[in-house]
Design a protein around this nucleic acid. Structure first.
Length: 565
RNA sequence: GCGCCCAUAGCUCAAUUGGAUAGAGUGCCUGACUACGGAUCAGGAGGUUGGGGGUUCGACUCCUCCUGGGCGCGCCA
């Protein structure tokens, strides 16, 4: 749909570049007008050229129109139905295209024949792209904020993959720092206390119930082996075990949430392999490190950052930033063409320094992108639940999944732009009612599935996909609702392209709600399975089209498409 | 104090990267089941896009100032 209009404009512009004395063609943007009366797709190219050509946009549009008419009146090279019903200039200089019904039916047929492959693109051209997300400290269970990051990251990876990128999903484990040690201390103290040795609890220790669970596990495995022994004596082993358990629980949470990673990268391992030093050496070789006040600094202010950053402290220890330098260099060394980091919004201050690192290692600016995930406020009985990881008062992702299910949870996380606050009302999410938009979409899918069951059971139609296609005459589709529904289906590739370009999965969420809405309205107003076999087959085919797109979209979001509910 | 993000219908949020008359859901009001799944559908009310100024053919979108919120600003991780 976009392609046809784009082609004709492009060809017309080619004929005009000489008279306009232009070297190159401008980017031609196409958009779907809000109002159906303004046609099916519109180009703003005349307005955009106005500044450049110093001419009124309408005048430019008229010149383009004249050229278009010339092309269209030329004898058609290919056979087939007429594509354009009308093309007209409107408003300040829009060129509006209205397609013929025959064209829409032909496009629907293509969708039915090619199915999902038509809904994907090759924008990425096989480029390797890495998406790092969740990357939680293994010092406690995942909370709801991690869940949002996981849902967005997962959907984004699905989008990029469908857009032709070679995607790698990675979880970075911050296991090298003091936080993990603090977990070990906390578990050590709880373990002692549990067995009657009243040691004080670490000042900044983790207070969550899970620390006691870990201590109990420890006792199950090792009995009283660590009792009455100081942290200095046995802390290493305890920390290691506690860390393993946390990591396993995180991995199983992700698995049950339906989010899988290709790779888990340990920070500690990077240190162990000497890669941190190597990364710093590489910066040194570029003359980007210097010593001051007994510490080693990175000249990040030469790039995007407002000041230089310490990478090696006075005491000789590396900073966390040094690990990050190393990690991002490692990503580049692994041959990725582009890198996406998904972080909590509270880390936004780190963007300039990481950007600096990647620039220092010669990654072009536009090949790195940070998606910020804004905070989630959990509401229970309409009241925000305060959360603190240290104090141990927080709702875990596990609890939410168990309570409302992974599909709904994921979907709700994807109903907002990533970078805006999200209220997660757990009572609404639990209600399996109309208030819950997931059901609205899934219900449309289940309804269509039910139609096909009905058709197979009650009638003699063979609705097996290929046979349905062969027997169907789509020209039976004449109702306004049917044409609107077809148009909506054909919008999907544009919505998808937009989502991929901007890395915004929520666009697909909104689209699916609109599509489901049109379907429900159509279904309510028109009977699908009627006594008229030709009409029934055509309508079932349209439903099949809706089903294909719903399935594709839900799949991208990581939400299931149930045949029955 | 400096920097980043946000402010849109009563509430929660969209708005095709600067496009035409700013849209959904929910809530409220009114209607539709002898129905292929009513977990649905139709209609109504609801707005000076926080405020002022600017940029241009055109601004919710970009610039600037103000107001009000969130988050950052460590040789912590």
């Amino acid at each position: 749909m976009k392609k046809e209009a784009l082609d004709i404009i492009q060809k017309s512009l080619e004929g005009l570049t000489a008279t306009w004395r232009m070297d190159a063609l401008p980017d031609i943007e196409m958009e779907v007008p809000k109002n159906e009366a303004m046609g099916d797709i519109a180009s703003t190219v005349a307005m955009r050229l106005s500044k450049l050509l110093k001419k009124a946009p309408r005048k430019i549009a008229e010149e383009i129109m004249a050229e278009i008419n010339k092309k269209l009146s030329a004898p058609a090279e290919e056979e087939g139905p007429c594509v354009f019903d009308k093309i007209e200039i409107a408003g300040p200089g829009f060129i509006n295209f209205t397609f013929t019904k025959e064209f829409f039916l032909q496009e629907l047929e293509t969708l039915l024949r090619d199915g999902h492959s038509l809904l994907r693109t090759d924008m990425g051209k096989g480029q390797k792209i890495q998406v790092e997300f969740v990357s939680a400290n293994p010092t406690g269970p995942l909370h709801i904020g991690h869940g949002r990051g996981a849902a967005v990251g997962n959907a984004l990876c699905n989008i990029l993959k469908a857009a032709g990128y070679d995607v790698q999903r990675e979880f970075y484990i911050n296991d090298a720092g003091l936080q993990v040690k603090l977990l070990g201390r906390s578990v050590h103290a709880r373990y002692q206390q549990m067995l009657g040795n009243e040691v004080p609890f670490p000042e900044d220790g983790y207070h969550g119930d899970y620390v006691e669970s870990v201590a109990r596990e420890l006792e199950k495995h090792s009995g009283t082996a660590y009792l009455n022994r100081s942290f200095d004596e046995c802390g290493g082993s305890i920390t290691e075990q506690a860390y393993r358990m946390m990591l396993e629980s995180i991995a199983s949470d992700m698995k049950d949430f339906g989010v899988l990673f290709d790779r888990w990268q340990s920070e500690k391992e990077l240190h162990g392999q000497g890669k941190v030093e190597q990364a710093l050496d590489a910066l040194q070789a570029k003359g980007l490190l210097y010593e001051k006040d007994g510490a080693v600094w990175f000249r990040s202010s030469q790039f995007e950052d407002d000041k230089d950053r310490v990478v090696k402290k006075q005491d000789g220890e590396y900073t966390y930033f040094a690990s990050d330098i190393c990690y991002h260099k490692d990503k580049l060394d692994r041959g990725f063409d582009a890198i996406v980091d998904i972080w909590g919004a509270d880390h936004h201050g780190y963007i300039p320094r990481i950007r600096s690192v990647l620039e220092a290692f010669d990654l072009p600016k536009d090949r790195f992108r940070v998606i910020l995930i804004q905070m989630v406020t959990l509401l229970r009985h309409g009241v925000p639940v305060q959360m603190s990881k240290r104090a141990g008062t927080f709702i875990t992702l596990r609890e939410v999944i168990d309570e409302v299910g992974p599909d709904i949870t994921k979907f709700i996380f994807l109903t907002r732009k990533a970078d805006s606050h999200l209220d997660f009302d757990i009572d609404v999410a639990r209600e399996q009612s109309a208030e819950n938009p997931v059901f609205y979409i899934q219900y449309a899918f289940a309804r269509i599935s039910s139609l096909f069951r009905q058709a197979n059971e009650r009638r003699v139609f063979n609705t097996e996909h290929r046979q349905l296609l062969e027997k169907t005459d789509l020209t039976y589709l004449k109702e306004d609702e049917e044409i609107s529904l077809i148009k909506k289906l054909l919008h999907y590739p544009m919505v998808f392209e937009g989502a991929a370009l901007t890395c915004e999965p929520h666009r697909i969420t909104y689209y699916l709600q609109e599509l489901a809405g049109l379907f429900h309205a159509y279904y309510y107003r028109h009977k699908i399975i009627t006594d008229d076999t030709g009409l029934t087959l055509a309508r079932l085919s349209l439903c099949r089209g809706v089903k294909i797109v719903l399935e594709e979209g839900l799949g991208i979001l990581g939400v299931s498409a149930p045949e029955r509910m």
